[in-house]
Design a protein around this nucleic acid. Sequence first.
DNA 1: TGCTTATATATGTTATTCGTTATATAACGG
DNA 2: CCGTTATATAACGAATAACATATATAAGCA
Lengths: 123, 123
Amino acid sequence: MNTFAALADPTRRRLVEELGRGERTAGELAALARDEFGLSQPATSRHLRILRDAEVVQSRVDGARRLYTLEPQSLETIDDWLDQFRSLWSSALAALGTEVARGRRTPTQDTTTTTTNQDGVVA
Amino acid sequence: MNTFAALADPTRRRLVEELGRGERTAGELAALARDEFGLSQPATSRHLRILRDAEVVQSRVDGARRLYTLEPQSLETIDDWLDQFRSLWSSALAALGTEVARGRRTPTQDTTTTTTNQDGVVA
DNA sequence: TGCTTATATATGTTATTCGTTATATAACGG
DNA sequence: CCGTTATATAACGAATAACATATATAAGCA
């Protein structure tokens, strides 16, 4: 789960967003990072290396260029990690669950036959 | 989107996972980090501060204890960010999209009336 | 071949991160 | 009140991160 660290940097997230729209050359990505963040070409190259090492992106050679593509599986890993928390916000019961977990004794409305991950809630 | 940085550390992810199961005291979390990572109490306290600053967790005072709870909205932010990429893996067409984006001329099977984010695919 | 373009790596600097030990703060129990 | 418990902060060092400038590598082209 090195992926989180790779995405911890705003520049890298921006590069990943761009690659979400399709394949890009290193030069196109460097231009983007220069325009939006004022970064030098080597700086972007370093960011791309970090993304490559984390397998968030992949590159292939095309003559003198390097073409980068997103590796969606890496993002899916994060999505999978989030699964264990999704019940805490995705259902209508999320707010209730939060209330109860924080010690409220009288939730707004009674709810039977439900489960959440938070303590103090019916399991 | 400071959240990614907060979750970049494995110890902090573990603490968040634990808090996903319900409210915990700082001491319980410190014990967990000590047992699983060999960390000192101050080290865990620092991790908790980082999670607090990033609003991934919240704490409240209970006598001499601090009770920590997860702030699920922060995780939802990540989930929302992932939305723009989800089509790249969630559908059966994801693999096909990848193929085409990478320059394959003859996908395994024809698919009409679909859209993906990747270049070279029907929009 | 030799200049130019495209991209990566090297180097040095500064800022940040993460850990430890030591210490402060505040509540608790006798 | 005092010792103990619970937790945070201070101080410091080692490792890492991120940037710029300079340079290497290799392809493209006249």
